[in-house]
Simulated assay, not measured.
Amino acid sequence: MGLFSFLFGNKKNQTQQYINKGAIILDVRTQKEYDARHIEKATLIPLSELKSRLQEIKRLNKPVIAHCASGIRSSQATQILKANGVDVINGGGINTLKKALE
């Protein structure tokens, strides 16, 4: 097994485990990015609004898969959510997450 298949296979397995647990997909990109292209049924909360909307996410009482365009903002979102007691994984960039959801 090559490095990429190890890394991405693992991401796919982890993503599927979270989906099976009823996870929501949280898109932390901007509204403009979301409008141009998004994952079906993803919830949009831009990273700039995340801290002020934490209770909205916590009320859902579900695991979260955060994603953005490249994985940088979703990494930041993952750190914020984990620090606030949310069960979350970083889904990475939109293309990576779409592949993991296939």
Results as ranks from 00 to 15, higher is better:
residue 27 D to R: 05
residue 27 D to H: 11
residue 28 V to N: 09
residue 28 V to M: 12
residue 28 V to A: 06
residue 28 V to K: 08
residue 29 R to M: 08
residue 29 R to W: 05
residue 30 T to P: 12
residue 30 T to L: 14
residue 31 Q to H: 10
residue 33 E to W: 14
residue 33 E to Q: 13
residue 34 Y to G: 04
residue 34 Y to D: 02
residue 34 Y to H: 14
residue 34 Y to E: 03
residue 35 D to A: 13
residue 35 D to L: 15
residue 36 A to Q: 14
residue 37 R to P: 00
residue 37 R to W: 07
residue 38 H to E: 03
residue 38 H to K: 14
residue 38 H to L: 05
residue 38 H to M: 09
residue 39 I to G: 04
residue 41 K to F: 09
residue 41 K to L: 07
residue 41 K to P: 09
residue 42 A to C: 15
residue 42 A to M: 15
residue 42 A to G: 15
residue 43 T to F: 11
residue 46 P to M: 09
residue 47 L to V: 11
residue 47 L to Q: 05
residue 48 S to P: 02
residue 50 L to K: 02
residue 51 K to N: 10
residue 51 K to P: 00
residue 52 S to L: 06
residue 53 R to C: 00
residue 53 R to M: 02
residue 54 L to T: 01
residue 54 L to C: 05
residue 54 L to Y: 03
residue 55 Q to D: 09
residue 55 Q to K: 05
residue 56 E to Q: 09
residue 56 E to F: 00
residue 57 I to F: 07
residue 57 I to M: 10
residue 57 I to Y: 02
residue 57 I to S: 02
residue 57 I to N: 01
residue 58 K to E: 03
residue 58 K to L: 06
residue 58 K to T: 04
residue 58 K to H: 04
residue 59 R to G: 01
residue 59 R to T: 05
residue 59 R to E: 11
residue 60 L to M: 15
residue 60 L to C: 08
residue 60 L to W: 11
residue 61 N to E: 13
residue 61 N to R: 11
residue 61 N to C: 07
residue 61 N to S: 15
residue 61 N to W: 13
residue 62 K to L: 09
residue 62 K to T: 08
residue 62 K to W: 07
residue 63 P to M: 09
residue 63 P to W: 10
residue 64 V to L: 01
residue 64 V to T: 03
residue 65 I to R: 03
residue 65 I to W: 03
residue 66 A to F: 08
residue 66 A to M: 09
residue 66 A to S: 14
residue 67 H to M: 04
residue 67 H to S: 01
residue 68 C to I: 03
residue 69 A to K: 12
residue 69 A to I: 05
residue 69 A to T: 06
residue 70 S to P: 02
residue 71 G to T: 11
residue 71 G to H: 10
residue 72 I to Q: 11
residue 72 I to M: 14
residue 72 I to K: 13
residue 72 I to D: 07
residue 73 R to I: 08
